[in-house]
């Protein structure tokens, strides 16, 4: 590793890529927890929702019937954790018949092409 990997002054670009639906598997919740923890390190964090990951942000989730915790309100706390870059892939939304109005937080909807550029500029990409 380069020496600057250990330098706390160096801010790196971290991107978390969420591609899984919530509840069916534990990936979505674990990724969210990882994002919250990583926010403590003052890095440049962004979160991407693509493929079935866009379902994580669907409004109106109501989980008592399946006896699981509804963690979707926590996405609204990300702003307070200074995680402000939330990207949603336009193609994934459209393939699922969703629009920005169906989502419970403000996001930036990007085409695959635009997202690809941002992804390529990251130092670390953590994918689920």
């Amino acid at each position: 590793m380069e020496e600057d990997d250990f330098n706390p002054e160096v801010v790196k670009r971290f991107m978390f890529v969420n591609r899984k639906a919530p509840y069916g598997t534990v990936y979505a919740l674990e990724s969210l927890e990882t994002v919250l923890i990583s926010a403590a390190f003052d890095q440049d964090v962004s979160v991407v929702f693509a493929d079935d990951g866009v379902f994580q942000l669907k409004k109106g989730q109501d989980t008592p019937g399946i006896n699981m915790k509804n963690f979707s309100p926590t996405f609204r706390a990300l702003d307070g954790y200074d995680v402000e870059k939330l990207y949603v892939e336009k193609e994934s939304l459209e393939a699922r018949g969703l629009t920005e109005d169906d989502l419970l937080v403000d996001v930036e909807v990007l085409s695959s092409k635009e997202l690809s550029k941002i992804m390529a500029a990251q130092d670390v990409v953590i994918s689920n």
């Binding site: 639906a21 919530p22 509840y23 379902f55 669907k58 409004k59 109106g60 989730q61 109501d62 989980t63 019937g65 399946i66 699981m68 509804n70 979707s72």
Partner: peptide, 12 residues
Amino acid sequence: LGPDLAARGLSE
């Protein structure tokens, strides 16, 4: 299954 639709915000 209704409870699974509701959990995912798909009731409507």
